[in-house]
Nucleic acid binder design. Structure first.
Length: 788
DNA sequence: CGCTGCATGCTTTTT
DNA sequence: GCATGCAGCG
């Protein structure tokens, strides 16, 4: 550690142009731009601070101004500030905004970044302390799964009953809680058929052999280093005078421990977050971290940002009321001085297609201005769904009517097969002992090396203690490979020798090299010969990948970058409506937001409730809160009575979150004829009279709605939340027996053929065989009783 | 070795 | 309804 001060990142600012301490007590004009709470949060520089920032309250502004103020007031130099975010996007944005505030680029902020990026930087320095070399590779999920699969097979476990994905989930979970194999509690021993801990230990050992880490390890290794090398920890504790954390409610246990250790030095830690926006519990985030902050950091100052600059009062009221149902909140009261604006709009539909059709029409109309609203550009509109499979209905519809849309958060660039393959080639060219990369592409394109040949190479590598590439070379010279593989693998090994030499050559143009690797390996040709419709797109992506190389000095630098920075939002700029998941929408805002699919089981998600009970339901509710608070001017919630899920028609009740909306702030839309005629009605004539009747009144006042609400409240509220559905269903299901004649609003009359779980299997006269939730069916002689 | 055909089983997602 | 993944066949 003697060379600590010589380290680049520490060095940079000490000698850099931005010598903050020399600028002490400069005027701070940026402070005038803040409201009182924000200003307090910015000026409370010393000691622990929790900034509770509700949605749209200027959190990023406060955070970035705080950094600027730290620098400007001479409290810290840029490289003495540790500022952590969760996403690269957030880190980038923060850098930009700080720079803007100070009117200059902030080159000396090496410790502003994601948890992972900062950990990589730390781990490269101290790798040897955990038995790694500093040029370790970072595995992506794919590599991780393949590795685990090998271990599972080697351990003679049936990989069908115990899939690698499951083990990967378990291990990730343990890592999130900062459990190394020796620290996994005995209570978890039953995991993965009693062998979880054993396989976890094997996996970690294998990673070390490969000089590789997975994402969880980045944090975990650093934590281990801090816990076992007091001197290393002490230096960082001393070094980081100020620690700032964005989205604190999303931190997991490992991140929390990491932060606590680092902040112990100067105790200047400022955590920013919103317990109401904690939506990542399922991947290990602990809301408890933020709820406990004051206990963890005695003397902490808690500052609430409550003035909302984003949404109208109706929208805020709706959001606040929904989130208010949750227990154990820190509590905030958002307010705004904006004018009332539109109420939150609520509309019900027959099925998912109709919902998509209606939203499409609404979007078209809004561009010209509807109901006295200003015209809205498509760019200003977003559709936020609970699960990505809901997106398809909208894509289908929008393609049909030619409405431009963009899907945000689909499979990312780097996750695509062709990009991963190309990267694997580059990885082996740079580091010939990257076995996982070699394994990935050894038979892509086909080189006649199937299972058998690959096993032969693996064995040779193991037996001789060398990399797979070397193992392959040995097999070739020993003549262990047969047929096609023999020649082609030999050629590949030679190619890699040449590419590796060139990758090391500083005079080599790395873009040219990359192109040649892809061409000479036959990889490009493989896609050129591919007749499937996605092949041209893949070739296009490969071109883009090569183009991205321009920003880097060499292949190594590029690989390093891509392992961590994984976003690549290419957009051709035209005005488009955005379609994304609620999770993906966090942190964004749109003038007009559509929230479709508010049906019990879909949202809140049944699975979430089954797996995590009340905790799960509360997280779903926070998701609802996040969704509503994305809207600035217009928020439209909708639900459908019927939806095709996994190819089967399913009925559902409106989401319980709809019951929680404050009536005063909601306008119920019921377009004439909505339930009556039109597109979807063909083939279900049996129900049209009821549909028409329901359309006459607004949904809240209709008898059907009231009955529905009464049913929900009598059956639901007295029951424990998580069992509520099952109670309804079992009661309802048991009301029918095989052979009953029944009526369903969409499918008409039919006979009960059987009961499957909470669904009835019904043979409808017109619509054929369907599985339907019992509560949407009535005995045929009471057909008039159906809600809607 | 590689292709085809059937069985299976499904949130949310960043790094 | 669809994608993925395995077994069995050519």
């Amino acid at each position: 550690m003697s060379n600590f001060a010589e380290d680049d990142a520490f060095e940079a600012a000490a000698s850099g142009s931005l010598s903050a301490r020399a600028m002490a007590a400069r005027p701070a004009p940026y402070l005038d731009d803040l409201n009182p709470a924000q200003r307090e949060a910015v000026e409370a520089l010393d000691g622990p601070v929790l900034m509770l920032a509700g949605a749209g309250t200027g959190k990023t502004k406060a955070l970035t101004t705080r950094i600027a103020h730290l620098l400007n007031s001479g409290k810290a130099r840029p490289n003495e500030i540790l500022a952590v975010t969760f996403t690269n996007k957030a880190a980038r944005e923060m850098k930009e905004r700080v720079a803007k505030l100070l009117g200059q680029t902030v080159e000396g902020m090496p410790w502003l970044g994601t948890f992972h990026a900062i950990c990589v930087k730390l781990l490269r320095r101290h790798a040897e302390l955990v038995g790694l070399k500093s040029n370790f590779t970072i595995l992506d999920t794919d590599d991780q799964i393949r590795l685990l699969k090998q271990l599972i097979v080697a351990a003679n476990i049936d990989e069908k009953r115990w899939p690698p994905r499951m083990l990967s989930g378990i291990i990730d979970n343990w890592k999130n809680r900062a459990w190394t194999p020796d620290k996994v509690p005995a209570a978890e021993a039953s995991a993965f058929n009693q062998r979880g801990t054993e396989l976890y230990a094997q996996y970690q050992a294998r990673l070390k052999e490969l000089n590789a880490v997975d994402f969880g390890d980045l944090l975990l290794h650093i934590l281990t280093i801090f816990q076992t090398h007091a001197d290393v920890l002490a230096q960082y504790q001393r070094w980081f005078r100020y620690v700032l954390v964005d989205e604190y409610q999303d931190t997991n246990v490992a991140q929390y421990m990491w932060l606590r250790l680092l902040a112990q030095g100067h105790k200047n830690i400022c955590c920013v977050g919103d317990d109401d926006q904690s939506i990542y519990g399922w991947r290990g985030a602990e809301v408890g971290n933020i709820l406990r902050f004051e206990k963890d950091f005695p003397g902490a100052k808690v500052i609430r940002l409550e003035q909302n600059y984003r949404s109208t009062p109706h929208i805020l009221a709706a959001a606040s009321r929904v989130i208010d149902t949750n227990e154990g909140r820190l509590g905030k009261t958002l307010w705004t001085d904006k004018n009332d604006g539109e109420k939150v709009r609520l509309i019900g539909h027959w099925d998912g297609e109709e919902e998509a059709r209606w939203i499409g029409e609404e979007l078209e109309a809004m561009q010209g201005g509807t109901r006295g609203l200003r015209p809205m550009d498509l760019d200003e509109c977003a559709i936020l769904v609970r699960a990505s499979h809901q997106m398809r209905a909208f894509e289908d519809r929008f393609l049909t009517i030619g409405l431009p849309y963009r899907v945000i958060g689909g499979p990312r660039f780097y996750e695509r097969m062709e990009i991963r393959d190309a990267m694997a080639y580059f990885r082996v060219a740079c580091s010939p002992d990257d076995d996982l990369a070699f394994e990935r592409i050894v038979n892509t394109p086909k080189r006649g090396a199937g299972d058998k040949a690959q096993q032969t190479m693996q064995r040779a590598a193991r037996a001789n203690g060398v990399s797979l590439l070397e193992g392959a070379r040995l097999c070739v010279s020993a003549g262990d490979l047969t047929g096609k593989a023999k020649g082609q693998i030999g050629a590949l090994v030679e190619q890699f020798d040449r590419w590796h030499a060139r990758a090391l050559d500083p005079k080599q143009n790395h873009i040219e090299l990359a192109e040649q690797i892809l061409d000479d390996s036959g990889y490009t040709a493989m896609w050129q010969n591919d007749k499937t419709p996605e092949a041209p797109g893949r070739l296009e992506n490969l071109k883009e990948l090569v183009k991205a190389l321009e920003n880097f000095e060499n292949l190594q630098g590029f690989l390093e970058h891509v392992a961590l920075i994984m976003d690549n939002e290419t957009d051709d700029g035209g005005a488009k409506v955005s379609i994304m998941t609620l999770h993906g929408a966090k942190g964004l805002e749109f003038p007009a937001v559509f929230l479709p699919g508010w049906e019990d089981g879909l949202f809140p998600s049944q699975r979430s409730m089954d797996e995590s009970g009340v905790k799960g339901l509360e997280e779903e509710r926070r998701l609802a809160y996040v969704g509503i608070t994305r809207a600035e001017e217009l928020c439209t919630i909708s639900f459908a009575a019927n939806r095709r899920v996994y190819g089967q028609w399913q009925s559902a009740l409106p989401s319980r979150f709809i019951d929680e909306l404050p009536e005063d702030h909601v306008e119920v839309l019921t377009p004439p004829g909505l339930y009556g005629g039109g597109y979807g009605a063909a083939g279900m004539a049996g129900g049209s009279n009821i549909m028409d009747r329901a359309a006459e009144a607004n949904v809240y006042n209709s008898p059907g709605w009231k009955r529905l609400q009464a049913r929900q409240s009598t059956r639901g509220m007295s029951q424990p939340q998580e069992s509520r559905n099952m109670v309804i269903d079992s009661t309802a299901v048991s009301a029918f027996t095989q052979g009953d004649r029944v009526f369903h609003t969409k499918f008409g009359y039919g006979y009960v053929m059987g009961i499957e779980g909470d669904k009835l299997d019904i043979e409808f006269e017109k619509a054929g065989s369907k599985k339907v939730v019992a509560k949407f069916v009535v005995a045929a002689d009471r057909a008039d009783d159906v809600p809607f």
